[in-house]
Simulated assay, not measured.
Amino acid sequence: MSPKGAVMICGHGSRDERAVSQFNAMVEAMKQTHLADYDVESGFLEFAHPILRDGFEKLKAMGHKKIYALPGMLFAAGHVKNDLPSEVNNFAHENPDIEVLFGRDLAIDPKLLMAAKERIEEALAGADDSVDRKDTLLMVVGRGTNDPDANSNVYKVARMLQEGMGFGRTEISYSGVAHPRVNAGLREAMKLGYKRVVVFPYFLFAGILIDRIYSHTDEVAAEFGDVEFIKAGYLKDHPMVLESFAERLTEIDTGDNNMNCQLCKYREQIIGYEGDVGTPQVGHHHHVMGIGTDGHSHDHGHHHHGHGHGHHHNHDHGHSHGHSHDHGHSHSHDHDDAKKSTGS
């Protein structure tokens, strides 16, 4: 039976072998389950192999004329809004006969909230049940980015989990870039007097950042011996995560793959980030593309051809961030027309 089509799963990449192997394991699981009827390749934006271009080229070599590109990332910050579309645009520009359709980030999703709930409950299962949920504080830890919209998503996830699971309080911290960091956030939370704290990393994969979250937790736990600290697991390859990926693919065909653009700093004047409106949609990862655990760079010289594709990322062209990245012109768009911007 011939495949339904081609799917390219786009990962962030990491210098940490655990993160890379967990991403690859998720891709393999998707191949066996939800994407069994498709030809599936994957690649990384930075720090790991294969790079994105390698995956696209493999699907091209199989003869596919339509490729669905799915970001393997939780929230739409710079990577999903700029770096990945830039890579997709480059490949599409060089292959005008191939239609490339870009899905949205996993975002805040009922299935992912269910996966998060189960990870937290798994951690609580081994704890003393004498402490009530209402006497427990949930600390949700996000990746941290320089995009306030993506950072604010962590708050929504936390609030949904607090209300859905009955925690007395929820606090937020980040593993990097944004503040508060985990140790500072936990110390602040200690002032509230809760007997138990559950630290939950809203992350897909293992890696240096997860290690940092857990070590920060241990650091603060040592200072507050009368409080119980519980480290919950991250999302990893929870079945609901795989279901969410499959849903993102379906959305591309139904036209429901709109990214939430309401507070996008590239489209609207967001306080404190006014200068980011209309930033060109170009990638920023060539110096680390393919540089990974083996220390070798394999960027194949694809330095965006120096033209940024004229995609001025205006974000004002009435788009709803349609995010199929074809906007009706199948990615063969004339790159001399700066107004044909791929919404991200």
Rank of each mutant, 00 (worst) to 15 (best):
Y194W: 03
I271P: 15
H285G: 04
D253R: 10
G310M: 13
L35D: 03
H305Y: 15
G55N: 07
E87T: 10
N89Q: 15
G193P: 02
G310W: 07
F224C: 04
N24L: 12
V40N: 08
F205D: 01
K340W: 12
H49R: 12
P3A: 09
L249C: 01
H34Y: 14
S173I: 03
R15G: 02
Q162P: 06
F245L: 05
D237L: 12
D135W: 06
P180D: 10
P96F: 10
D316Q: 15
N89W: 09
V277A: 07
L124R: 12
D132I: 11
R159P: 00
I208K: 11
V157W: 00
R196G: 01
E228T: 15
A6V: 06
F75T: 11
F224G: 01
F75Y: 14
M26L: 15
N260E: 10
I108V: 15
D149N: 11
T342G: 11
G72W: 01
R267S: 14
E118N: 08
H313L: 08
A92Y: 03
Y266L: 08
L70S: 09
G11R: 02
D237R: 14
L161Q: 05
H305A: 13
V7H: 01
R104N: 03
G255M: 04
G318H: 15
G306E: 12
E247L: 08
K265D: 03
V131L: 11
H298C: 11
K231L: 06
L124T: 07
R187M: 12
K58F: 04
G13T: 04
L52D: 00
L124W: 03
D253G: 13
L161C: 06
E87M: 12
A77I: 07
I172D: 00
Y38D: 00
S173E: 03
H329V: 14
H315L: 10
D97L: 04
